[in-house]
Design a protein around this nucleic acid. Structure first.
Lengths: 198, 198
DNA sequence: TTAATATACGGAACATTGTTCCGGTTAGCA
DNA sequence: TGCTAACCGGAACAATGTTCCGTATATTAA
């Protein structure tokens, strides 16, 4: 197992990349993480490449679109968020409460990543796959939470998880750069609006 | 008054532009209106210039920043929206109801202008003055409506007009291009969340 | 260890914008 | 009719995203 030459023993897995390729991929991921944190997720490609000490073409080789790079950088956190939703749902409290907590967690994640919220809503085709990734992973979680709350009679019917996620994501736009705007407060209002209207 | 040579009779008003300058300004406004409607408010400058039959420098001469052009194109509608708020407030109904109607009107305006909502929230300094214009004109109106509803005890306290406007604007982003996303519904939820809690 | 080859690399080159500059044109006026 | 200040158009410049191509190298087989 320690020997690198025995690759691809499992089914159709890729035939293992060259060592320099793996090194560069890691360097790019690290550089992108740092640059995204300071300059936002729309920072110039050249900046990321130079920080990683590689040429621009190397970025495109490893991450065909910017969406792939962003997804790779934040994958762990998205997964953690999705799993938190499942945990929250399983924990015995009120489903509406679980929904509220989960939404807050999502906001905490998105609103602290400079520019991520905008990009998630952008209709630029370059970001379509990022959009799809977030949605595929999180909408089902949100949907479960929503259904549970609806079944418990805590919220009004007719709310779609996709729409709610987009709404929450939208409310997070610009949250980092404007001290007068608190996305959490607005999202709280939105979630409060879900409550059953008696 | 019909004679053009007697200009600037009132105080510091501009000394009247040349005829070709006025003609071009009008042509640019018309072209921008058309292009914004089809390609969105972020359409390339060259597209607007060529549609107006002028060079690009002429755009910059008349509208130093894109924000100025956008503001000029939508000024009438913004004014109308602001005035509608005052009317709604004066009309004797429930203040909360008036607020809801006014917000809906604002959404109808913003959500039908391709890309306007995004640009309104953008932190690109080029749009800062547009941002300021919308806010200066509409936040006071919203503030009055909000205060009236608060005074009537219909909504919870502590809601800031600026924050609400930004939230509503944010919710309008992407509303034109996604049939699964209905900004009006989300905004309705947000406004419902304003209701006094018990 | 060495040589062959597929893989990966870097940076130049190209395309698409926004923005500014400059020489020529023209409206307004005497 | 001619002068001049204002205006005009398009070329030129700058900042990006994206692609191409000759070169370098990791890997493997002899």
């Amino acid at each position: 197992m320690a020997d690198a030459s025995r690759a691809a023993k499992a089914g159709g897995s890729a035939p293992r990349k060259r060592a320099d390729a793996r090194r560069n991929e890691r360097a790019l991921l690290d550089a992108a993480t740092a640059v995204f944190a300071t300059s936002g997720v729309e920072a110039p490609v050249r900046e990321i490449a130079s920080r990683a000490g590689v040429g621009v073409a190397t970025i495109y080789r490893h991450f065909p679109t910017r969406a792939d790079l962003i997804a790779a950088v934040y994958r762990h956190q998205v997964e953690a968020c999705a799993e938190a939703g499942e945990t929250l749902l399983a924990g015995g409290g009120s489903p509406y409460d679980a929904l509220g907590r989960w939404v807050n967690r999502f906001v905490d994640f998105v609103a602290t990543k400079h520019g991520l919220a905008s990009v998630l809503q952008s209709d630029d085709p370059a970001f379509q796959s990022l959009h799809a990734y977030f949605l595929d992973r999180l909408v089902p979680v949100c949907s479960d939470l929503l259904r549970a709350a609806a079944d418990a009679g805590e919220i009004r019917a007719g709310i779609d998880a996709y729409e709610l996620m987009r709404g929450v994501g939208n409310l997070c736009i610009g949250a980092e750069s404007d001290p007068r705007y608190d996305a959490r407060r607005l999202v709280e209002l939105l979630v409060a609006g879900l409550r059953r209207t008696a």
